[in-house]
Design a protein around this nucleic acid. Structure first.
Length: 567
RNA sequence: UGUCUGAUGGUGUAAUUGGCAACACGUCUGAUUCUGGAUCAGAAGAGUCCAGGUUCGAGCCCUGGUCGGACAACCA
């Protein structure tokens, strides 16, 4: 918890992240007339992931905290990479996370006319020129980090010639790559980005919004700050890799902005998670090469993947709040994310009994054909969730792992001669087991004590273990997709020369099994969330149909028993 | 090598004009429990990258190092 820490007196001691400290300092000086306005500016060229969620929470959260506004703006300045498919998914994801931009939906492409006009003005001021050098030459002329660049032979064209050439670029007279508009700054600048950066390039490609109206498109650096300026953004929050861009951001602004007001760029550290990759390029590779089923594969760190996995928006927002905002590189243990979902799901999801790896258990002294409808609590954390009935009969399934023939002392589930409680039902005692020719247990035979049923006089009797179960004749076979971490190593992107991050994929990241669920799940619809008692949190997959129910494991329950067994 | 930037328990984030290094996760005890979950109580774990300096007092200020990250696309 970073933003609020309770003191003993119960008052809130406020501890601000560095961005909020900056804002409060500015506010106290009356900067921007107390206005706080942020924006989330994705390029619509891919799906949003949990790193974006951090940024969304920061931008929208900051605006909300200071009674300000947050815009959604698509940074769509490169038509060859962008598509409306992504625009739609991004809007869906931001909304799903619980944020709203009201009527403040913008596109950098909304500003193409204004940007063009400003470019003309910058040319007139002698601060930009049309360069005929090709890409290779430009890169050559730019020099290196240790060696200054040299000026292009076209750098000193007259304003008139530049104006003429730029207009003709816009009119489509030149081919892609034949000319660019560059800012005239300093070819020897220690910051490479300031060595006459490109403002416009020629791309004869239809834009997903402006169609064929333009064949010249502004570069990120030229478009971004001006877009911020046009929208009245006060704090332009971005990730650390843009730190080097800040002088350029400010340079462009100073070419066109009037008056006092300037948006301010502030950078924070992007999110890295253990056992996952976050780079768009690598995620795309996983999709294209079919290592996952798509962008919304429940193992993906994308927002749509996490949604399908069963994560809640609340858990993601809480996660973002918990990890905080700072400038040092962060590698967050994915276990913290898992903690955040469990914490949320524990409070909100109804319990249900499902047996994943069944073994048959027969109650020898229970009447043949008898069925009892036992009352089960839907959610012990939420009394208002009520009760349901679960059928109980002579033949049941329990988890194979819940029985051991020769257990160690610490095992307090079912063992020969031992007693356990069947949840909501009776205390039973193991009498014998049947095995097949290979020695595998096929049936466990038990006796039950009638007066130990939940709620009955002798039900207080103490036993160490309580098992979940499902009645064989009432069980609903369901498909369960057991998801685990996609990668087997903590930092899958760290690979030695000649190796590929995909070698670090976890071969067991998905196991599909058929399980037996209690009949109450029959009415489930996609997106429903459950706790399968003693196993974990699961949600109904969109592939699920009434005839074939499919559940995804969101995350297993915290399991100190199996952890202690592994050691 | 240039510029920018950062360094606080295992992880992440705090520490207000310099004043007992705190919170969460994780770990370990114990209590409780019809989920080996949850809940409750408690404990261990850093002396703040290093070396100097200023000061009654430095995580914070100063000087010099060390180590990490970002940047050399007509991507964003």
């Amino acid at each position: 918890m970073t933003e609020e820490t309770k003191t003993n007196s119960g008052e809130e001691k406020v501890s601000l992240n560095f961005i909020h400290q900056i804002i409060e300092e500015e506010l106290s000086k009356g900067k921007n007339a107390g206005r706080v306005h942020t924006r989330f500016p994705p390029e619509p060229n891919g799906y949003l992931h949990i790193g974006h969620a951090k940024s969304i929470c920061l931008n929208f959260g900051t605006a909300a905290k200071y009674n300000g506004l947050a815009n959604l703006r698509f940074d769509d300045t490169n038509p060859v990479k962008e598509d409306t498919e992504y625009v739609d998914s991004i809007m869906e994801d931001v909304r799903w996370l619980g944020f709203d931009w009201d009527d403040r939906l913008f596109y950098a492409s909304d500003y193409f006319d204004q940007l063009y006009t400003w470019a003309l003005q910058i040319i007139k001021n002698g601060k930009a020129y049309v360069d005929d050098l090709n890409a290779e030459q430009i890169s050559e002329y730019r020099g290196t980090v240790t060696r200054p660049g040299k000026e292009s032979p076209f750098r000193n064209r007259s304003v008139e010639e530049n104006l003429d050439l730029f207009t003709r670029m816009k009119n489509g007279e030149f081919e892609d790559g034949s000319k660019v508009l560059r800012a005239k700054i300093d070819m020897a600048h220690p910051n490479m980005l300031m060595r006459d950066p490109i403002m416009y390039r020629i791309i004869h490609t239809d834009h997903h919004r402006t169609g064929d109206k333009w064949c010249i498109y502004p570069m990120y650096d030229y478009a971004h700050g001006q877009s911020d300026y046009l929208e009245g953004i006060t704090h332009s929050i971005c990730t650390l890799e843009f730190e080097v861009h800040r002088p350029l951001y400010e340079w462009y602004l100073n070419q066109v902005a009037e008056g006092e007001y300037r948006p301010r760029q502030i950078e924070f550290a992007r999110l890295n998670l253990t056992y996952t990759v976050m780079s768009k390029r690598k995620l795309l590779q996983l999709v294209n090469e079919n290592y996952v089923t798509g962008w919304d594969d429940p193992r993906m760190p994308t927002i749509c993947g996490l949604r399908r996995r069963g994560y809640t928006p609340e858990s993601l927002r809480n996660f973002a709040e918990t990890i905080g905002i700072a400038k040092r590189d962060q590698l967050i243990d994915v276990a913290l994310l898992e903690f955040c979902v469990r914490e949320d799901l524990n409070k909100r999801s109804n319990r249900v009994m499902t047996v994943l790896n069944p073994v048959k258990l027969v109650l020898d002294n229970y009447p043949e054909g008898k069925v009892e409808e036992l009352e089960a609590i839907n959610n012990p954390e939420d009394p208002s969730a009520g009760y349901r009935k679960v059928p109980f009969s002579k033949e049941l399934y329990i988890e194979r792992e819940d029985f051991m023939e020769n257990p160690s002392g610490k095992f307090f589930r079912l063992k020969p001669g031992g007693e356990v409680r069947l949840k909501y039902a009776y205390i039973i005692k193991c009498e014998s087991v049947n095995k097949d020719s290979e020695g595998n247990i096929t049936e466990i035979h038990c006796t039950y004590q009638e007066d130990t049923r939940s709620g009955m006089p002798n039900s207080n009797k103490k036993v160490k273990g309580t098992l979940h179960w499902v009645s064989v004749s009432h069980a609903v076979p369901v498909e369960v997709r057991l998801y685990d971490r996609l990668f087997a190593t903590e930092t899958p992107e760290d690979v030695e020369e000649g190796h590929d991050f995909k070698e670090n994929l976890n071969p067991d990241s998905l196991k599909v099994i058929t399980a037996f669920a209690e009949p109450s799940v029959a009415a489930t619809k996609a997106g429903d969330r459950f706790q399968f008692e003693r196993l974990g949190y699961f949600c109904t997959d969109p592939d699920s149909t009434p005839g074939k129910l499919i559940f995804n494991r969101t995350v297993a329950l915290k399991d100190t028993w199996s952890k202690s067994q592994q050691q």
